[in-house]
């Protein structure tokens, strides 16, 4: 189990170079070297694909002093983003393997072009979207916390656009109550899908109002770069107030439906994984607690906030609902 191929250093991209420097600069800043900051600062720090990196709405500038060098990416609570290396080397993507560290090497080279997403079901204007079509939506950077149901978490600077923008374009009919998402089914190249322990393909769902919420993102990249395969290339969902498994990867179908969709996890263990899967420290997984989490890169555990800290923005969606029943 220990012979997972490591990514050779020769393959470390310039992006990581840039990130390494970002970390280094943070150290320099701590050493109170404002001059050094100014000297080796701005130019290469902004992700090159400039149109993909408008100011993240969810994250105000950290502090007045350090903001000029945008040395540290933080979310709206001031929590620092995980490194590119962390985000791209520790992935749950069961279509390839259940071994989180093996996903990156195993998924390397997986073809994501051409790619098409069929959007249909209860809509007035169904359509097939390729990557160019998706890139026409106004892309923005959103720095979100991602809380895995396994009780670890990361802060990730996604690039993408609100799912609502796409849904508005296809015009859901009045009958549409839910959105159903489907991952690509490709057992020839995704060995995990040959396991019949789970019902492939991966299915996820949202209630229409959740799907239309501005925080709900269709992500096409991270750290200003195109989405790495292991993170769900070329396009994935990101719903930051729900457990990570709701944020379905490598989407090929989106359907507006009337009935609540049954997700892969609901089918696998209905008493353990519910449809809503909102991050909730007061509702433990039947077999383990959800009160605390380990932020990747930190030694001390953090206590998990309700709705992963997005309660102010999303709690109204669930008013009057018993979240212990609708877990």
């Amino acid at each position: 189990m220990n012979n997972i191929p490591k990514i050779p250093s020769s393959e470390i991209t310039s992006l990581q170079h840039y990130l390494g420097r970002r970390r280094f600069m943070k150290g320099a800043a701590v050493a109170a070297s404002a001059l050094a900051l100014a000297a080796c600062g701005a130019p290469t720090l902004t992700p090159s694909s400039s149109d993909k990196s408008s100011t993240p709405p969810a994250s105000p500038a950290p502090t007045a002093g350090a903001s000029s060098a945008d040395a540290v990416l933080v979310d709206e609570l001031g929590q620092e983003a995980n490194t590119y290396q962390e985000i791209t080397s520790y992935n749950n993507f069961y279509e390839f393997t259940t071994n989180k560290e093996a996903v990156a090497p195993m998924s390397k080279g997986y073809p994501t072009e051409p790619w098409k997403i069929e959007v249909g079901g209860l809509v007035n204007k169904p359509g097939v979207y390729d990557l160019d079509d998706l890139n026409k939506f106004q892309q923005e950077e959103r720095i979100y916390r991602l809380r895995c149901v396994e009780a670890w978490s990361m802060v990730i600077p996604w690039v993408g656009f609100p799912l609502a923008a796409l849904l508005k374009q296809v015009e859901p009919t009045s009958q549409a109550k839910y959105v159903r998402f489907e991952t690509i089914y490709d057992p020839d190249r995704m060995p995990g899908q040959r396991s019949n322990w789970y019902e492939w393909p991966y299915i996820e769902g949202l209630r229409l109002d959740e799907a239309m919420h501005d925080l709900t993102l269709l992500a096409t990249g991270l750290y200003g770069e195109a989405m790495p395969i292991q993170n769900g290339a070329p396009v994935r969902l990101v719903v930051p107030w729900k457990y990570g498994f709701k944020s379905i990867k490598s989407i090929v179908r989106i359907d507006l439906v009337e009935e609540q969709p049954t997700s892969l996890w609901m089918a696998a263990a209905p008493n353990e994984y519910g449809f809503y899967a909102n991050v909730n420290p007061d509702v433990s997984h039947p077999r383990w607690s959800q009160r605390s989490e380990r932020r990747i890169g930190e030694l001390k555990r953090r206590e998990t906030p309700p709705f992963n800290g997005y309660g102010e923005q999303v709690a109204y969606l669930y008013e009057g609902m018993d979240l212990k029943v609708n877990f």
Binding site: S284, R287, W288, S289, S292, R294, L299, R301, E303
Partner: peptide
């Protein structure tokens, strides 16, 4: 020690909820 940093308040809560 390492995972819970000897945080016995948190550990107590976990012990009740984590039957494993």
């Amino acid at each position: 020690g390492l995972d819970y940093g000897f945080n016995f308040r948190l550990l107590g809560l976990e012990l009740v909820e984590k039957r494993y």
